[in-house]
């Protein structure tokens, strides 16, 4: 085991790459849950984003069209969840599970019907990397950030945007009010259900962008179930980050670093003992349980998170 394997530029660059899909899902979770709707369909939204991004890229040969299509389908899946959670007052966990199963089944089904067993086309339009020429020559820093993908930067920008939106703007305050105390919010004239609809739809778009990042920036292909639970890690990052965008970023970076380490330490050993790299991958989940249980800080959800809202007099 060497220092380079622990904190080398390669590991840190990989941390950013691996954190990005988690971060986008986590941001989706933050927006949705701050408005009071639990959205565990983030995993499904990512998966449809990954798949339909590839389909659109294949059909249109345009990255922009592909990303728009991915986010539109993600928004669509989230909209179903929104109708179930907000309008029909379904159990939000069951609805989210159903949509996750639907997304996995539907994308695998269509993948088989569209591309058979040969896999998706190899000449897909991919999301480009952003080369920062002046930084490229800078040692270390250049290796970490000079060649990152456009969506990595988009994710970081979204952290700032959503943080400012939620905590420094009036619509953001309203969204949070809807998640903390919907009755009070409605009393002052905020449209509770409408706000929640937009929040859930936005969360689907964010998660789908994370999915499209996996298929169009990293893998340049789609394989069944390729999100592999990253939507759930995103959920964990949201919780560990205490339902804030900046917190979600920190959590995503920690989780991404854990995964980057598990790659760079593959086959490494301390003394005679092989490093059990797979156990590093449990880090996000263990930390999250500890955080929610209050052993590491204390993570508390918005007060009305997951509770359907009924207008007064509707009984």
């Amino acid at each position: 085991m060497t220092i380079d394997q622990l904190i080398g530029a390669g590991v840190l660059a990989a941390t950013l790459r691996l954190a990005t899909p988690i971060l986008l899902a986590a941001l989706g979770g933050v927006v949705s849950e701050r408005a009071g709707v639990v959205n565990i369909a983030l995993e499904g939204c990512m998966l449809v984003g990954a798949f339909f991004g590839v389909v659109a890229a294949d059909q249109s040969h345009s990255v922009v069209v592909a990303l728009v299509a991915a986010m539109a389908v993600g928004a669509g899946l989230a909209a179903i969840h929104a109708v179930a959670a907000i309008h029909l007052r379904s159990d939000q966990i069951v609805s989210g599970m159903a949509l996750n199963i639907l997304a996995l089944g539907l994308t695998s089904y269509l993948d088989y019907q569209f591309y058979g067993t040969t896999g998706t086309p190899s000449d897909l339009a991919g999301v480009p990397d952003i080369e920062i020429a002046p930084l490229a020559a800078v040692p270390f820093v250049g290796d970490v950030i000079a060649h990152q993908n456009a969506i990595v930067w988009a994710g970081l920008a979204l952290v700032v945007l959503i943080q400012v939106f939620l905590f420094r703007t009036v619509p953001g305050l309203r969204l949070r009010a809807v998640g903390e105390h919907p009755r009070a919010a409605e009393t002052v004239g905020i449209a509770v259900r409408q706000t929640r609809y937009w929040a859930v739809i936005a969360s689907g778009m964010l998660a789908a962008l994370g999915g499209a990042y996996l298929s169009l920036s990293v893998a340049h292909s789609f394989t069944d179930g390729m999100t592999g639970g990253r939507g759930f890690i995103g959920l964990a990052a949201m919780i560990f980050g205490r339902w804030t965008p900046v917190g979600a970023l920190v959590a995503s970076l920690i989780f991404g670093y854990g995964t980057a380490l598990s790659f760079s330490l593959q086959g490494a050993s301390i003394g005679d003992v092989r490093v059990p790299v797979q156990l590093l991958s449990t880090l996000p989940y263990v930390l999250t349980i500890l955080a929610v249980a209050g052993f590491v800080g204390r993570s508390r959800p918005p007060a009305a998170d997951g509770i359907p809202y009924e207008t007064e007099g509707h009984a």
Binding site: S90, V94, S95, A98, L99, I101, L102, L104, Y109
Partner: peptide, 19 residues
Amino acid sequence: SAQLVSVIEAVVLFVIAAE
């Protein structure tokens, strides 16, 4: 595709959740 049954299962679950 055998994945059709996942789609059916998801719809069952969703229909029940939404009553």
